[in-house]
Design a binder for these strands. Sequence first.
RNA 1: GGCUCCGUGGUCAAGUGGUUAAGACACCGCCCUUUCACGGCGGCUACAGGGGUUCGAAUCCCCUCGGAGUCACCA
Length: 483
Amino acid sequence: MADVRTRFAPSPTGYLHLGGLRTALYTYLFARKNNGVFILRIEDTDQEREVPGAVELIYQSMREAGLTYDEGPDVGGAYGPYIQTQRRDLYLPYALQLIETGAAYPCFCTKEELQERRDAATARGEQFKYDKHCLHIPRDEAKRRMQSGEPFVIRQNVPATGVAGFEDALFGHVEVACETLDDNVLIKADGLPTYNFANVVDDHLMAITHVMRGTEYLSSTPKYNLLYEAFGWQAPIYVHLPVVMKDATRKLSKRYGDPSFEDLLAQGFVKEAILNFIALLGWCPKEEREFFTLPELVEAFDLDGLSKSPAIFNMEKLVWFNSEYIKKMDFETYLRTATPWFEQALAGRGVDYRRLAELMHGRTEVFNRVPDMVRFLAELPEYEVELFTHKKMKTDLAVALTALTLARPALAALPTFDEEPLKECLMALAESSGLKTGQMMWPVRVALSGLASTPGGATEIAYLLGKEESLRRIDLALQKLSA
RNA sequence: GGCUCCGUGGUCAAGUGGUUAAGACACCGCCCUUUCACGGCGGCUACAGGGGUUCGAAUCCCCUCGGAGUCACCA
């Protein structure tokens, strides 16, 4: 087989969504695994859908994901340009060549006429299909009209009978009857090619050997193969990837507010976790294993681990992956990453972020959840006195009152609020007063935090709060309990 | 609706004619414990349904049902 050349060919319509990211990932992995070439090509032939700045967004996402490409608009290569609108003039000659051989023909029907006929057909309950009306215009007349400046498109001349098919590396042989196929437009009135045509011409010109793309193209691929045959070109090997779903019936789509790769990064997901999770959504490694770095994915990737059915994007599992990756993060990286999130809730409070980070490191699932978890340090939340009652800790209001009454002067007498002395003090106090550890610690922690659960125990929180604020909060609790 | 494709627990999934049908997330329980997490141990839940083929089907065939994709001068 020739050297493997693959491509990721997104349209610049906004952020890179997760389905696109997965396609890019698999394509990249396949290329790298086979020591092949990975290419980025921008398919921007639809000028109406083009979103300004989207191309740069794609470069950025690819870079952030670590999916480096060997050829592309911003890195160059021997098969450029890699942006289709910059290739606009090279498609027409190929279409003209097809007209010569009868595999295509110019069509002068206007969009409006077509739409009327389409509407009429649906009104009758029929499915519209172009009737090859313009195919029957005499060759000379057609040529004259094309040269006269009359708007026209070029359509593929699909045989009326017979079958068209192709071999998919994942789905096997796929075949359709030609009569169910429409004569699609190859070159639009604006002179730009449609996807149907551009992808065939470009994949051939760029010597692409393997095409990986979503299954939305599965049913139209036989038509593309007809084009390859008409040109006498060798078609690439196709690998169609099942779509990524949001739930059982809807696919993941940015239009419906589902997160893009960039969104997830902004929310505090780490890119390694996203990639790892995405890789396993529709692909399964040979070995029993679920943690992979990008290089490890390259090593492990193989086509027959791919699944044929759509996979539902399971946010909970992504969150789990993320928390695992955060735990594996070295501490300094965690501290650096978490600090801006601490700032959101604690700016100017003088909290010891390093100590807080130690406590939070093993409990952080997604960074955007951090501010809510630490906000109690800045401001004591409103809480009900019933919070002091905890069955497992064997505490009730009376126990809490006793514990806090004892703790208050003992803590006030402490010269510093370091954790060790704090702990020794409270433990000793519990023991000497006949209280269980929990009966002392629970009330103190609740008084300090106003929360049923916190990222740390009573002594850690007392340290973070400092002596003054801690005593203030205990006094408040004492008031509550005495009322 | 036509065409194409898919169908193992709630989710991701292993499985390619003979298995007690893995594993992970989630969930539940227990242990650990100054809360909550973490961690450890254990548990619940699946071959869409019906026909075949076969000594034997999650695995092969057919039908039904369910779901998805696609039917543009969008990609």
